[in-house]
Simulated scan of single mutants.
Amino acid sequence: MTLAILAFFGVLSILLFAVRGFLDQLPDVFASAGRARDAWRALKQARGEEAQRVALQAVPPPARQDEDPPMAA
């Protein structure tokens, strides 16, 4: 009987040690996830700005009202 009690509490202490180790790592996991999310958003925003800049460069500037329109060739 004594051996069974010692075995039970030995397994319990190992289990608690493992759970404590897991819980100690959670703040770092959440911080890493937050940094990854922020980097992903920054990447998507940079790609969107680049696409917008390329699209704006392809569009010719509007003609001024006081200038004559270009002549057809």
Rank of each mutant, 00 (worst) to 15 (best):
R20K: 11
M71I: 11
D68R: 04
S32F: 00
R41Q: 14
A55N: 07
R41G: 04
A31W: 00
R37M: 08
E67S: 08
S13C: 13
T2W: 04
R41V: 15
L56S: 10
L15M: 10
F8V: 10
A7F: 07
L16T: 12
L6Y: 08
P69N: 05
F9T: 13
L26W: 03
P62R: 14
D68C: 04
P69E: 10
G48K: 01
G48I: 07
Q52F: 06
I5H: 08
L6V: 12
M71K: 10
P60W: 00
L3D: 15
L16C: 13
G10F: 01
V54C: 05
L12M: 12
V29A: 02
I5L: 15
F9M: 13
G10D: 10
A58N: 11
L23V: 14
A31Q: 07
L23T: 13
R47W: 00
D28C: 02
Q65E: 14
A73W: 04
A72Y: 06
F22E: 13
P70L: 02
R47I: 12
V19K: 03
A73C: 03
E50D: 11
G34H: 07
Q45M: 09
L12S: 12
Q52M: 08
A72C: 05
L12N: 12
F22G: 09
P70Y: 04
I5Q: 10
D28A: 11
A42N: 00
L56I: 08
A33F: 00
W40M: 12
P60T: 08
L43I: 06
P60F: 00
G34W: 04
P60E: 03
S13A: 15
L43G: 08
A73G: 09
P69A: 04
R41P: 00
R64Q: 09
L12I: 11
Q52H: 06
V11W: 06
P69R: 07
P62A: 15
Q57V: 09
E49H: 01
F17P: 02
G10T: 14
Q25W: 06
D68F: 02
I14F: 08
A51Q: 05
R20Y: 07
E67G: 03
V54K: 02
A58S: 11
A33V: 06
P60C: 04
A63Q: 10
L43H: 04
P70I: 07
A31R: 03
L3Y: 06
G21L: 04
